[in-house]
Design a protein around this nucleic acid. Structure first.
Lengths: 207, 207
DNA sequence: CGAAAAAATGACCGAAAGGTCATTTATCAT
DNA sequence: ATGATAAATGACCTTTCGGTCATTTTTTCG
């Protein structure tokens, strides 16, 4: 006597297809220029179908950003909380996390979308800040604080400005979308170099 | 027997007013959503007048980005070329340059526009890369090379990845447009902390 | 099987905005 | 002054979507 949709899986697949197509089109053309008709065509549905699942174009964008939550971030959070590792190693882990994020085209595209459209759609900026930025910042602060407590680190800039720690991830996301056709960027090399500098800058003895 | 416009100055003022209004509207609403009618109204001209000076909306955007060339960058370039100063001081100068750039709303808005729309308008990305990014990169490389030659610096990451040096400027431009309503950022503090870390990371003796 | 309910479709509507151009206004030469 | 020229205007045209909804298709259940 079930009464819910006969296709719990099919329904989810459809939503996923729409979101994937939307990410593609939004990322390619920008929010305004992207056409619902194209998104529908790419997702293999009719335009009207999109409105069965999403209220409006804007809600579709919000759902899209919301659907790309950071599972990997949670793993790192646990690792830092458990903390058998040294602060230096945790910082290296953070670098690995950024490298991974920069290598994932979907995540990069969502990040770039947020940076591009976030000013006009506060819900987007708010969500991304809450789910990614503030969590990443807390992580950095925890790692630096731990390093300072243990004596590994003798400076505190990233505790005051966590942005300094994840700046290269932001640079990579923007660069790969905007300047890569002009000048290629080795994102993982960039992040590796960044972490190396960060460790030297933090661990250095006071002059 | 003059035959040119009766108003050489008025003509230039009009172009400036249009560009200023365009920056305002593009930056506020994004390229697509910005209305030519609004730009015209804000500039105090009729819509048709814009088309007397610019071929299309897209050309207006390009002209806008092109009109914000970095005079300060040129000063720094000369200073580095002349080079009586130490590499450390030059790096501090570069920090001051970034602070200044981050504090100028117009420049920030242009940067954010390039990051947001550059992927769709290659002419924009190309121009900004040529006039700002590549010149900034060359500057960084020259400063680091000089420091390494003189023995001041014993590491070379920013020479391989100049992006590491100007990442905070990019972060500031994005942050102040997207996340500032949610969490304020002290851009000059950020850049100051960044330069401090950079100097420690570069000058450290080999362990 | 067949009726009813649900899901999907895509032709259509209306608003919005980029771009045009006939008309008006200001400037200049004589 | 006045005709000629250039500049500016803004009503208008046209196209382009976001969003709707009557119709069609699929699924469910007695």
């Amino acid at each position: 006597m079930g009464k819910q949709a006969r296709t719990p899986q099919a329904r989810e697949d459809r939503v996923k297809a729409i979101l994937a197509a939307a990410l593609d089109q939004f990322s390619q053309a920008g929010f305004d220029a992207a056409r619902l008709d194209d998104i529908a065509a790419q997702a293999g549905v009719a335009k009207g179908t999109i409105y069965l699942y999403f209220e409006s174009k804007e809600r579709l964008l919000e759902a899209l950003v919301a659907s790309t939550i950071s599972a990997p971030l949670e793993a790192l959070e646990k690792r830092v909380a458990a903390s058998p590792a040294s602060a230096s190693d945790l910082l290296r882990d953070f670098g690995a996390f950024m490298t991974q994020a920069a290598a994932d085209p979907d995540r990069r595209r969502v990040m770039h979308l947020v940076f591009s459209e976030g000013a006009r759609f506060p819900a987007l900026a708010r969500f991304h800040h809450r789910e990614v930025i503030s969590r990443g910042s807390a992580l950095i602060r925890a790692i630096i604080a731990k390093g300072r407590a243990s004596g590994e680190f003798v400076h505190d800039e990233p505790e005051r400005f966590p942005q300094l720690a994840f700046a290269p991830a932001l640079v990579a996301a923007v660069w790969l979308h905007v300047f890569d056709p002009i000048e290629k960027l080795d994102a993982s090399g960039l992040i590796e170099a960044h972490i190396a500098m960060l460790l030297r800058a933090l661990t250095r003895e006071v002059l």
